[in-house]
Design a binder for these strands. Structure first.
Lengths: 185, 185
DNA sequence: TCCTCCTATGCACCTCGTTGCATAGCAACG
DNA sequence: CGTTGCTATGCAACGAGGTGCATAGGAGGA
């Protein structure tokens, strides 16, 4: 389980509340690790009782108070230990691939609109990534070329961009294959 | 949940026992949808009681008897319904991406061997895919160019190949980034 | 003969993840 | 003043998924 480690990384990048973490998991972090607010609150409780994070009540004006979490020593140690631990690549799960193979036993042409829907979703996400790259990494950093945090965030984003481009190209391949059945009928 | 649909597709391609399905999920199907034998047996029971599949006891010599499952009418209908249903892209989970961003708060160089391990795994899998492609799709099919089942299996395999190539290229990008910190120190 | 391995099926338990719901403060709008 | 909507936290229940273990037939080797 890497959710607790993903939370540690996010809190090291910037301390915040459960609610703020949940919103980060809808954007940057969530592009390669998803979590709902329920999971996050539950795991934060456990991490707090394990001494991995510290909590601080923060009064806010114009909105409800919040609990701001930050990483404590044992949390840092746990993250360091996990980084040195060998983990297997996460299992891939593409329901669309199941559908494509299943289309052989139904109407392949009926799948075209579904594939196009997925293609659109990946195109949108790619545009979003590219906009984020220009915004956050377009200019060389003011504090020298060796800011590890920034460089590593950028290489992860480049991974997301490569993934979306690969998916769009593959979905075009799928569409061409499906169109071939139509034409050849 | 697509496990039941993945099982339906696999049984339509070829009827078999839970044990055989489990081994298929370790190879072809398992490249884009994973499942343990426990999940498979459990779901097969449910599918049987729902009338999605038929069972046939098969006596074997030199090994224990087995139950051979095949898809029944309601199962076919359920698959067709699912194919016409809009599903969201599965959420991606790359623990390595979490590690890469986490490396900013530890020793980036310590991550190199872990990244290289993953790169090797993806290289191995790519070689396996390419061998399978040559074996299964190298020759044009004897029964005409419009065998939908074969064509669709091939396009899914091409997706796997594209994924592995993308991952290898990205891992090289990560390694170059990590090496940059070492050199610049 | 015993040990190990492969085929084949299954139970019990536990964790992870999701859904639905509840509560509560405050802002903005009609 | 009521409704809607955003911030913020949390409980309860359920289903999916994974680990460990158990059983059982037969093959093959030490």
């Amino acid at each position: 389980m890497a959710l607790e480690h993903a939370i540690l990384v996010s809190l090291l990048e910037k301390p915040g509340s459960g609610y703020e973490l949940a919103r980060r998991f809808e954007r940057s972090i969530g592009y390669f690790w998803t979590a709902t607010h329920q999971q996050i609150y539950r795991v934060l409780k456990r991490m707090e009782s394990d001494g991995w994070v510290d909590v601080r009540d923060v009064a806010q004006y114009g909105r409800p108070d919040k609990k701001e979490y930050s990483v404590a020593g044992p949390g840092r140690a746990a993250l360091a230990a996990w980084l040195n631990e060998a983990t297997e690549p996460e299992s891939v799960r593409h329901d669309l691939a199941v559908k494509v193979r299943g289309a052989a036993f139904g109407d392949p042409a009926a799948l075209i609109s579904e594939v196009e829907r997925h293609r659109q979703a990946h195109t949108d996400r790619l545009a979003h990534y590219l906009a984020g790259e220009t915004r956050d990494f377009g200019e060389p950093p003011a504090h020298g070329p060796l800011d590890a945090e920034r460089e590593l965030q950028h290489v992860v984003l480049r991974g997301g961009i490569a993934y979306e481009r690969m998916m769009i190209a593959w979905l075009d391949d799928v569409l061409a294959t499906l169109a071939g059945f139509d034409a050849g009928r």
